[in-house]
Design a protein around this nucleic acid. Sequence first.
DNA 1: CCGTATCCCAAAAGATACTG
DNA 2: CAGTATCTTTTGGGATACGG
Lengths: 119, 119
Amino acid sequence: MFERKIPKDLDCGMAMIMEIIGGKWKPCLIRNISQGHRRPSELQRLNAKASRRVLYQQLQELEEHGIIERIVYPVLPPKVEYFLTELGNSLLPVINVMDDWGTQYLKNPHKRPLLKLGA
Amino acid sequence: MFERKIPKDLDCGMAMIMEIIGGKWKPCLIRNISQGHRRPSELQRLNAKASRRVLYQQLQELEEHGIIERIVYPVLPPKVEYFLTELGNSLLPVINVMDDWGTQYLKNPHKRPLLKLGA
DNA sequence: CCGTATCCCAAAAGATACTG
DNA sequence: CAGTATCTTTTGGGATACGG
């Protein structure tokens, strides 16, 4: 459905995890859903700046990668819930480590260093 | 030099760290350079599949973010070396955590789960 | 309410030629 | 060697309309 012309090489772990959490809204979605079951409409509200299409696309990819799962209630109007899998849960500490580092960085805004001249 | 029409919002730590390490070759470059001082030509050799332009661009961004620094030897032909800053070093554990998770994931290839039906 | 299809634009990355 | 300037292709993401 979203075919690439050039296949990605997911040779190393780093490339793999970037593939999984690299989307613009994925870390947000993972965190939202980690708080408890979440319905699509809730996720749209929580990430109001994301477009509908991208949100669904990234949810799909998270599902395909086994990070989240979907429960479909056969009712009208439709009701759906997402929840984190165990695999998804194992991702939370990683995301936290990343976020912590980034938060620390934001507190100490970097000054571009002067050019060093070698001997 | 590489101006964006739409400014990024680097509001949270997660967005910030993705900005810093999100480039396709940045984690590779950081690791290469963490092994010791590296010259541009070495980095090109080590990342042969990356185009010249992108490599230099990402090196520049890493430098602007204070992850690496550059030593310029005033000789002919030109000689330059990159090395990791302390800040750059503090990034290594984060990258390792990410890579470990990804490597683990690669060992247990995920099967897409069947759709769950709610009550 | 959930999800998909279409269309569009901006950004990332590749190829390559050129300069000091 | 190191670095920059074009130019081009691919991809990611936003807007929005439509269908079940």
